[in-house]
Deep mutational scan, measured.
Amino acid sequence: LTVEVTLDGRRIELHGLSEEAHEILRHALERNADDKEIKKILEELRK
């Protein structure tokens, strides 16, 4: 799955996400998580 997010003013596409990762990010974006929170989530998903 692919998600497009804006971090530090740049639009980035995240490819190859699992369903779980996609859901976690989608929920964070829906509640307008800040860049710091999104980065933390991405860091966790990379593990």
Rank of each mutant, 00 (worst) to 15 (best):
G16P: 03
I41P: 00
R46T: 14
E37I: 09
K36I: 13
A33M: 07
V5D: 03
R31W: 06
L42N: 00
R46A: 15
L14V: 14
K39N: 08
R31I: 12
T2C: 14
E13Y: 05
H15I: 09
L7V: 14
E13V: 15
V5G: 03
L45K: 01
K40E: 13
L14C: 05
A33N: 04
I41V: 06
D8E: 12
E43W: 02
L14H: 02
E13A: 06
H27T: 14
D34M: 07
K47T: 13
E19S: 12
E43G: 10
V3C: 08
K39I: 14
A33R: 03
G9S: 03
V5Y: 00
T6D: 08
D35Q: 11
D8W: 00
A21Q: 14
A21E: 15
K36Q: 13
R11D: 07
E20G: 09
A33Q: 04
L25C: 03
T2R: 08
K40W: 07
E44M: 14
L25P: 02
R31D: 08
E4I: 14
I24W: 04
V3M: 15
K39S: 10
R10C: 15
I38S: 00
L17Q: 01
E43I: 10
H27R: 14
D35M: 08
L14T: 04
E44R: 11
L14F: 06
D34I: 06
S18I: 02
N32G: 14
T2V: 11
L25M: 04
E4M: 05
L29P: 00
R11E: 08
A33L: 08
L14I: 15
R10H: 15
R26N: 13
A28Q: 02
I24C: 06
T2K: 11
E20V: 10
L7M: 08
L25E: 01
A28N: 01
G16W: 11
R31G: 10
E19A: 10
S18H: 04
E19Y: 12
H22V: 15
R26Y: 04
A33K: 04
E43R: 10
H27K: 15
V3T: 06
L14Y: 04
D35S: 13
T2Q: 06
T2Y: 07
K47G: 12
D8L: 00
D34L: 08
R26L: 14
G16C: 07
K36G: 13
D35N: 08
K40C: 07
L25V: 08
N32K: 12
A28M: 07
V3Y: 04
E37P: 01
T2P: 05
G16T: 05
R46K: 12
E44N: 13
E23P: 02
E4K: 06
R46Q: 14
E43V: 09
R10P: 03
D8C: 14
R10I: 15
H22Q: 10
A33E: 05
I38G: 00
L45W: 08
